[in-house]
Every structure is written in C-alpha cells, then in structure tokens.
Design a binder for these strands. Structure first.
Lengths: 343, 343
DNA sequence: CCGAATAGATGAAACGTTTTAGCCGCTATA
DNA sequence: TATAGCGGCTAAAACGTTTCATCTATTCGG
C-alpha cells in the first residue's frame, strides 16, 4: 500500500497540512472539533508518521546506540538491559550493535551510526589509545559515553568499574589461599579491561613481595571456547610448572577452563583453583560454583544511559563526568578449598 | 559543527549537486578528474551522508530489525549472531529490539519500527493467535519473518524448530529411564514454544499408554529466577507426589531448578532428573551437566535473515516459505543415572 | 564535413515532515 | 469606536538526498 502521508490526512480532514502536524505534536493548540476530525482521518487512512522525514527536519534521530564487544556475553546483555530501561523511559529507542572485539566492525558501525545522525552512542571500545572515530563523532556534536572504560579524557563521559582493584581483589584472595604459581588468563591485551585486571593482579603480587609468581596466558577472545584452549595449554606444561590457581579475565573464560580441566580429570579447586570476573548469572550454576569479581552490570548500563541523555539535553552547558563503581569479590567453591603450604 | 551537506561539497568542488550524488552512487559515470575533485572536497569538508534524507527519498531504510523475547537469553543471542552475519554481508544493519515477553513493549517496538520504515522485521512474537500489528506491517509492504515459530499463514515466511518433536524426544528419554512422575516446567503458556514442547511431551506420554503422569507447573517467564521459584514449589509437595524428573521449557529454567534443588540438598539426577531445552553453551558447564534438546540456533538466525532479504529483493514475485529444522536430544549427566524400577 | 550518437554534467522536482510568519475574526480594553 | 491581543488556522520554506529529463561538447561513422 502506498502509505498515506500528512498531506492526504489534511485533505481528508479538510484542514491544512500544518494543522495536522499540530494535532500530532501540540494537540492542545488546536480546537477540539478539528482535532477530532484530524484524528479520525488518521485512523481511517491508517496514517503512520514517517520518521525519516521527521529526522531530516530535526537534524538528528531519536535513537541511541550501544556498541558492545560481544552480544552473547551475559555481562553485556545485562548492561544493555540496564541502558534499555532508561532510554525507553525517555521515549527513545536503543539499538544494539556488536563489534565482536573487531576494530573494523566497530568502525563500520560507527560510520553507519554517524550517517544516521543518532542521538548518542554508548560504547565499550575495542582498543585503548586514541580513538579517531569517536573523536569524529564528538566533533560532530554526537554525545559519546564510554562504558566499562574509565578515562581522563575531557571530551566525553564515562562509567566504569575499577578493574585494577578487581584484579587486586582476586589476586589477594588467591595469595591468601597460599598459591605460589598463579596464571592470569585473558586477552587480547589490547582490551583495556584485560590489561587493567592484569595490572591489578600484578600489583597485588608486588605488594606482597613474596616468592609467588604470575604467569600470563593471552587468549584471542573472552569466550568459553578461548578458555578451553587456554586450559589445554596449561595442561601441556610440566606438572611442576603448572599453576595451582588461575585468575580469568572474565567468567566465560573461567567456565571454559573449568570444563576443560574437569574433562581432563583435574579437580577444581583441589588441583587448580579458579577465580573469574563479572559474576554472571551462570557463575553460580557452574559445575563447581565459580568465585568471581562482581560488577554492578545493569547499573553500569543505567548510569551510562543517564549521562548520555543528560548530555543530549543540556548541550553545551554539559560538564563531562566520570563515574567509577567498586567491584566486589564473591568467593565460591572454585577457589575456597582450605589448604596449607603449597608447592 | 554544522555538518557539511552535499551542496557545500558541490560548491567546493566546483560541480553541480547531482554530480556529487553520482560520485557517491554511480562513480563510473563521472569523469576520473572530476570524481577526484569531488572526493577531495568530501574529505576536506569531512562530509558524511545524511541517512535520513536518503531514506526519505528511497522510501525505506536499510536496516532490518530483530525483535526477541529476551536479549539476555543465550538462545536468542545466538540467533541474533546468525542473523547479523547475513544482514551485514548484505550491507544492511541489524538492530536488536527486546520485547521482554511483554506484549505492550512488543507493540511499541513494532510501531516505532513502522515509523522508521525498516526494510524488514525478524520476530519471535510474544503470543500466538492473531497478530494485528504484524499484519499491519505486512499490509504496508514490510516483509516479516517469524523466528522460532512455524505457521501455516500464507502472508509471511517462517523458520522454526519442531518443538513438538523436541518435547517428544525429552519425554521419551525420561520415560525410558523409568520415571513415572514427571513435571513440565515452563511458561507463560501463551508462548507457543512453551505450549508446543508441552504438547510433544504429552503426546509421548499418551503413546506409551502406561501409568506415568505428567504434571505441569507454569512459570511466569523463561528465566533462571523463574526456575528457582518453580523448584521451590516442587519441593513444597509431599514427597510421595514429588516428581522424579522434570522437563524444562528452556535451559535457563533448568539451570534455576538445578541450583535450587542442589541448594536444598537434593541430588541430580539421583533424586530428580532434569532435561532442559536449547542446549545453550552453559548447559554443558552446569553443576551437573544438563541434558537438553538442541536447536540449530545460529542457522535459525541465518536462514531467517536470508528469507527476509530474499523477500525484500524480489518483492511481489516472492513465494513465502516455511523452514522447519529438527531438534536433537543431547543426553548428559543430569538425566542419565542408570536406574531400575521407580516408584 | 555533417548528422547522430554519446559521455559528462546540470537543474529542478520530489520525498514527508516541522516550523515560522502571518492572516482572520473575535473579544476585551481604553 | 479604535486598538490591541488572542485563539485558530494557513501557506510556504526548509531539511539533504536521489533521480530524471535536459543540455553541451565531443567523437564517430559515413
């Protein structure tokens, strides 16, 4: 069906085009009788606003985008749900884009979003370092809020969880359990989350000044499959060098490690202890319930969305803010085995 | 920055407006020298196409939407990834909308998508029965493909997995294990998936003609939390009436049940056997690895996207198709306990 | 060397809104 | 009675593209 437009509605109701627009946008400025006539015309013609035309006129759309590293990662789905809630309350629409930890895909998405003149972008960027794409958006006046990534940059807001602290918490815990050979599993290191959590762990180790050592095994991504492969590598080591505990950059990796170790006959935590990160819903339901560093996921999303809307409303008067949440260690069976001296 | 438009580019390059458009859309029709001049102007001005204007002209956008019941459900995230792949290859963009099993939100999303004149919609609808919103979209010429929902309807394509068969597989398996009191956990029943899986289970029971019984416990949603609550209810039953096996409408519920039962001191599968549905990645990593009915998730998404694009291209000549995949039972520890007569 | 074909570029119309300036008829005020 | 103010409405411009009919050189075949 050739969709009816505002002009046909006007003709059908015997009013001018501008009046129909007023009925739609400022109903109180038009007399009740005419208003009703217009509304009737709208329903009989099945008229539906054309958003392209509105946007064109307005100069920007009413949608907000969130670009995440992995749509299938429960951490991000929770962040998305938090953001969604706030955005929808504001009458806007949230579209979810998946960069898949791939810079090229991220760039492509940002280009498309820029063409669409989106109202704003929430993003967990793939890399750290300079981000020309994001700067371009900001130059164009599109608000950008960094999610799960703190920054000192003055030209954008951010919400984050203190990943260095999170790394510390996990490492301190494992050291407290007496572990001497510990591995950090995660990657790619270009992800700031991965790097920061490692930095925290390394710092905790340093502070102790003991003989414990931290080996790093870099994975290609933060998925269950990557965790499985990483576990295989650990198992390939001579037993005397094999870590007695692993700290994983996220829970998906931890679950992969757990699966692979168990499949190969090792016991968790007796042979190898595991601490994950994110405390996703499935951590608690795992074969051995997983210790994990918990992040306030949906609050992260909600706050990010609020900052974005605030910036979009207030325009130039806006002062960028950087919100940092504190993580929290949740200890479960995967790391809790009481143990004495370890060798 | 006031964004540069095509006219300024034209002026800057000393050509007409139409020529710039040609450079953008049909580069081969313009002389190399001018083309280069235009391209230079584009980069120096930082010109970015305005998609609203393009859409307005074209009459429809280049984005495709997928409306899912729950963004945080791993089943749907996998479907989304499958669809995404196909859509992006075609140079379009996939936006993910979350109905949250809520009819009102679903309707709101569809209205917004209609206003946006999206190229097409992939959707797992909340209810069964007539779907006026979808029919409206179709009337307007927007292709709709039903995901995970077969239908005899002639005015749309669909991809689905045979849920009745899936229910049968699960039930047959549990009956084979000698269970006599079995519960089906899932809801709301308005979800066709939930209803069909139950129908399959009931049919399997009928076919046996034995004394086994199937109790139904309806949950409010398909989440881990709902599963926990359902398990509590089961535990409230007198022991002699308590089911010895439960078949869950999806894996999230199954994981919730597993968690709650374990927390209350029951053993799985010794005291209660569990079979889930979807075979999500975490089923295998659960405390007790979960038996589950596997669905080809990303193929579901891929196929749906392909059907949609096909319809969008071919227009009127399109013949609607209904693709049905077969599910497959994956037996793991949660239901595998060898057992004799059961009482 | 002429007419026709052709490559390359142009100008204007169209897509469907929102917004703004202004018009008309009426009432309240001076 | 003249004027200002106001509610209700209209007409037209503007947003930034794409497309199509048209125009102008240039080239080609004869």
């Amino acid at each position: 069906m050739a969709t009816a437009n505002i002009k046909e509605v006007a003709r059908h109701a015997g009013v001018s085009l501008g009046t129909v627009s007023n009925v739609l946008n400022r109903p109180d400025t038009v007399a009740p009788a005419t208003r009703q006539r217009v509304l009737d015309a709208i329903t009989t013609l099945g008229y539906v606003r054309n958003d392209s035309a509105r946007q064109l006129r307005a100069g920007h759309s009413r949608t907000v985008a969130i670009v995440v590293l992995d749509v299938a990662n429960p951490f991000f789905t929770d962040v998305v749900r938090g953001a969604e809630q706030v955005i929808e309350e504001a009458g806007a629409m949230l579209v979810v884009c998946n960069s898949g930890e791939d810079r090229a895909r991220e760039r492509r998405h940002l280009e498309l979003l820029e063409e669409q003149r989106v109202r704003g972008v929430l993003i967990t960027p793939v890399g750290h370092g300079p981000q020309p794409n994001l700067d371009k958006l900001i130059d164009r006046g599109i608000p950008v809020v960094l999610v799960d990534r703190g920054t000192g940059r003055a030209n954008r807001c951010s919400v984050a969880v203190d990943d260095v602290l999170g790394g510390r918490l996990a490492m301190d815990h494992l050291l407290d359990q007496g572990h001497q050979r510990i591995a950090y599993l995660g990657g790619p290191l270009s992800l700031a989350q991965v790097a920061d959590r490692h930095a925290g762990a390394a710092a905790a180790l340093d502070d102790r000044g003991g003989t414990a050592e931290l080996r790093v095994a870099v994975t290609t991504s933060l998925t269950v499959a990557a965790g499985r492969r990483a576990a295989e590598e650990l198992l390939a080591l001579p037993v005397r060098q094999r870590p007695t505990a692993v700290f994983c950059a996220n829970d998906l990796i931890a679950l992969g490690v757990l699966q692979e170790l168990t499949a190969r006959g090792l016991r968790v935590p007796a042979d190898v202890a595991i601490v994950g990160y994110d405390d996703i819903e499935f951590a608690d339901a795992a074969a051995v319930p997983l210790s994990s560093v918990r992040q306030p996921r949906d609050q992260l999303g909600r706050t990010a969305a609020e900052l974005l809307l605030e910036e979009a409303e207030s325009g130039d008067t806006h002062r960028h803010r950087h919100v940092v949440f504190q993580p929290e260690l949740v200890v479960r069976r995967s790391s809790e085995q009481p143990r004495r001296a370890r060798r």
